[in-house]
Computed example of a mutant assay.
Amino acid sequence: MSAIAAWTRQHRLIAFFGLTLVLSWWSWPFYAVGLAPVPFFACGPLVAALVVIGLAEGRAGYRDLLSRLTRWRVGWTWWVVALATPLLVLAVAAAANVTFWDAPVPDLASMAWADIGLLFALRFVNPLDGPLGEEPGFRGYAVPQLQQRWSPLRSACLLGAFAALWHLPIIVVGELQPIAIVVTFAITFVYVWLFNHTRGSVLLVLAFHVAQGTVSYAALGFTGADADRMDWLAGALWLVIAIGLVTLDRRAWRNAPPAAIPSVSAERVSV
Rank of each mutant, 00 (worst) to 15 (best):
A3S: 12
W7S: 08
T8P: 02
H11L: 03
L13P: 03
L13N: 06
L13S: 07
F17V: 08
L19C: 10
V22H: 09
S24A: 14
W25F: 12
S27D: 09
W28I: 03
F30E: 11
Y31T: 03
V38G: 01
P39L: 12
A42E: 07
A48V: 01
A49V: 04
A49N: 02
L50H: 03
V51D: 04
G58T: 00
G58R: 01
D64M: 07
R68V: 00
T70M: 03
W72P: 03
V74M: 03
T77R: 15
W79E: 02
V80G: 08
L88F: 13
A91S: 14
A93V: 07
A95T: 13
V98D: 07
V105D: 01
V105N: 04
D107R: 10
S110H: 14
M111L: 13
M111C: 05
M111T: 07
W113M: 07
G117V: 09
L119D: 14
F120L: 08
N126S: 14
P127E: 09
L128F: 14
P131H: 08
G133F: 10
E135D: 09
E135Q: 15
G137R: 05
F138V: 15
R139P: 00
R149K: 15
W150T: 11
S155M: 05
C157H: 12
L168G: 07
V172M: 11
V172E: 09
E175N: 09
Q177K: 13
I181L: 15
V182G: 05
V190L: 10
L194S: 03
F195E: 04
T198Q: 01
R199H: 13
L203E: 04
A207D: 01
F208W: 12
L220S: 06
F222G: 02
T223I: 01
T223L: 10
G224E: 07
D226E: 13
D228Q: 14
R229S: 12
M230L: 14
D231H: 12
W232D: 00
L233I: 04
W238M: 12
L239T: 14
L239I: 15
V240A: 15
A242Q: 02
I243E: 00
G244S: 06
G244N: 10
L245S: 08
D249M: 11
D249R: 14
N255R: 15
A256M: 07
P262V: 10
S263F: 00
V264K: 09
V264Q: 09
R268E: 11
S270C: 02
